[in-house]
Computed example of a mutant assay.
Amino acid sequence: MAITILPPTVEDVDLSALNSDIDAMSMDSDGGVDLATDKASRPSKRPRLVEGTNITSGIVTPGEVVTDDPQWMRGHGTYTNPLSTSIIATVAGNVQKTNKLLSVQPLRARYTPEIGDLVVGRIVEVQSRRWKVDVAAPLLAQLPLSAINLPGGILRRRTSADELQIRTFFSEGDLVVAEVQTVHSDGAASLHTRSLKYGKLRNGVFLAVTGTGGSGVSSSSVKGGVGPGAGSMSASSTGGVVRSRRQVWTVNTANGGGDVDVILGVNGYIWISKHADGTASASSTTDNVSITRLEEIVSSSIYSSQNDDIAPQTRREIGRLAQCIRVLVQGGVRVDEETVMGAYEASLQVDLEVGDEDDDDDRRKEGREYLEGDKARRILELVLEGK
């Protein structure tokens, strides 16, 4: 980046007044200096940069001039024309000032991986020793074969037979929950699923909410979805998933829905599914089995693509939670455990406010999971009041 050095500026001063002051301060003794003979005034300091001078406020659009002041430095989201000193925005967003550095924070941006992030991703490519995973980042993340639990023990060496059976663990289109282990110099992330709480996702519904900057919310029913059309949602907002909050928890739903698991990926991918206590069921039947055998039994359930039977009550509560997250994103509210649970409880309260005259109408009761219009506005009011 070229740096232009500007000459110091000289302010206009009254020379007559300056000369009178210098005459009063002149020295007449031997060895003194007569300052009155010096007609040139010393250049003043460069005026300090006034905060917000000639800077576009609010939201800027690509190609819009942020400032013409040459004393500002360009940051991310901006560029400078070689023929001028103007700083021009390259993305749509808000202008941020850090000392003399100007940058534009985009309204919508891709997810930037960081070590330790819990993410939900989709397998898009299977290679010889690794999987390529879409985690809503600029580059596809990779999940090495050595970073997963294989049947037979966590410390077993990976052989050529495992490479031939790589599709039996994950194949194209599968959804996985993993943790970011390494971030490379080019920005690509390496994932791992060595913990038993990670692995393949099933028995639920998938939603996509931008984790950085905020964008639309969308969801789609996947292999193991709770029903046809359960994920046909789209919206536009500035919400997103909050980092550094609890991202996996179990909701004890109402109306006989049982327990439902919610996974909020930092990358903005969300998974809501029926709670499956696989570890407890395995331990109850394998009390006298060795640790290696127990690891093999648990791993076989993790990589299974067979979905369990989901009761209609559980399907309705999964759909209700998905609708609550949609309401939050449409209202521009950040998505975390507190807001999701607040929206879910608010939706139950809205159902009670409907009245008891519809309790005998089964169709009305089945349609209460549709949270739009006045219901959505009421839920947002209750959530914001509870903060």
Rank of each mutant, 00 (worst) to 15 (best):
V50G: 05
A282I: 15
T53I: 07
P47F: 10
D134L: 01
P151Y: 03
P43W: 00
V248D: 06
N19C: 04
E125R: 13
P151W: 04
V251W: 01
E369Y: 03
D356V: 09
T80V: 12
G224D: 12
G152R: 05
K97I: 15
V205M: 13
K365I: 15
G331R: 15
K100R: 15
V133W: 03
S84Y: 08
L371E: 02
W249C: 03
L191Y: 10
L380A: 02
P106D: 01
L264M: 10
R74F: 10
D14G: 12
L384D: 05
D21G: 12
V135M: 11
L150V: 09
L348W: 00
T238D: 07
G265D: 14
A343I: 08
W72K: 02
P8E: 05
A254M: 12
T53C: 01
R243G: 04
Q306I: 14
S244W: 05
P113M: 09
W131F: 04
G152W: 07
E163V: 01
F170M: 01
T212I: 06
P113W: 01
L264Y: 08
S215F: 14
A282M: 14
G213I: 11
L380N: 12
E295W: 14
G227S: 14
Y111F: 15
T238S: 11
N267R: 01
V241F: 03
D259K: 15
A40P: 12
G367M: 11
I22M: 09
P7S: 11
I302Y: 03
V66F: 07
D362V: 10
S44C: 05
L145Q: 11
E357G: 03
E64D: 02
V205F: 10
K387G: 08
L35W: 15
G63H: 02
P62Y: 07
K132P: 01
N19H: 12
D351Y: 04
D308C: 08
L191N: 06
S160I: 00
G257V: 09
A189R: 09
A311L: 06
E179P: 05
E385K: 06
T159V: 02
T98F: 15
N149K: 08
A376C: 02
C324V: 14
K365L: 15
G75K: 10
Y111M: 03
Q349S: 05
L83G: 13
L49Q: 13
T238M: 09
V133I: 14
K97W: 10
R377H: 08
T285M: 13
D21E: 11
Q247G: 13
L384K: 04
V205G: 08
I59N: 05
K39V: 03
Y111R: 04
A17V: 14
Y344G: 01
P70E: 09
G173A: 02
N307W: 07
V95N: 13
L380Q: 14
L164R: 10
Y198S: 02
A136P: 09
G265E: 10
T286P: 01
E114W: 00
G229A: 02
T279S: 13
T168G: 06
K274V: 15
D12W: 10
K39S: 09
R158C: 01
Y344M: 00
P113D: 11
G332I: 03
L18R: 12
S244H: 12
A89N: 05
S347R: 00
R334C: 04
W72S: 00
T285Y: 06
V120T: 12
D259Y: 11
P151F: 04
V126F: 04
E114T: 07
I59M: 10
A147F: 07
E172P: 00
V222E: 08
